[in-house]
Amino acid sequence: MKSLKLLLVLFLVVLPFAAGAGQTEKKAKTIDELVEMYDSSGCKDCHAEIYTQWEKSHHARPLMGVKGGLMLTPLATKGATAFSPDDPQRATIKNFPCFKCHLPQALISAEDSVAVELAQALVAQDATKVAKLRITCTVCHNARAIIHKRELGEPEKGVLYSSKKDIDAHPDKTFTKVKKSAIMKNAIFCGQCHGLGPNLEFDQPFQCANLYGSYLHSYIPAGGTHTCQECHMKKGDHVIAPNFNDDKQTSELLAQAISLDVQTLGYEWLRKAKDYTPKVVVNTKITTTAGHRIPDG
């Protein structure tokens, strides 16, 4: 009887953990737990400038839209979208397909209870709580750093991936190593989220950014050779402009990429004998050198 009990304990308690090592990571039950799991605030100790740039970026407020708009509110509002739950209390991760890009760590590491808490925060318009959810350093520099998973495996725990070089002893308690990512300098790295077109893999398709599709199908065929990073992350800038909360900088960036030529003409048009119509003609030509359609995201 005693050995039967022991066997039962082994079967119920020990085996699931052994089998799940590396696969069944503990998931966050609350927004705060998820924030803690992907907390990158320690990065600023050594990378202060980059961290400050990131804090100004849309990556630091992926659920806040432009100028503080809680853009996911319809997803938490009954009947507003096909994804919205009838009751925020019953929200699941599946009610937030936007997590694919706007909070990828939620798909990896969050229980449905995080979706409930977020839905409730959105209904309550609790911007402070929603703003906690950010695409932190570790999302790009770990979770999204490898796409050739059949060849290169999953991103390793405790490893940060960089566009530059391997570092065997990275002075951080959690991320003790840096490995060079195969894709971090390539446009496809950004293309993981800055989309191809309709997201048809969901049970209800939706379309967010088309930007990478535009890059591949318009910019590259037109002879473009730059990567996203070469234009939007010059010298490693992690604001990754545009920052639509910064009107001046956004206008300047757009003016760099877009030219406007205006030609005007005044004359009297003769429609029929003796019937002149004074007319102004305005000819405009707008040209863009951006690596994608404008607008897109």
Binding site: Q207, V281, T284, T288, A290
Partner: peptide, 23 residues
């Protein structure tokens, strides 16, 4: 994004192309 499914028209500015208009 939560309502859109696919583009049916695209008048946006395209890379290296000139958008000309007369008014």
């Amino acid at each position: 994004a939560q309502w859109k499914v696919a583009n049916l028209r695209d008048t946006s500015l395209q890379p290296y192309q000139t958008k000309a208009d007369t008014i």
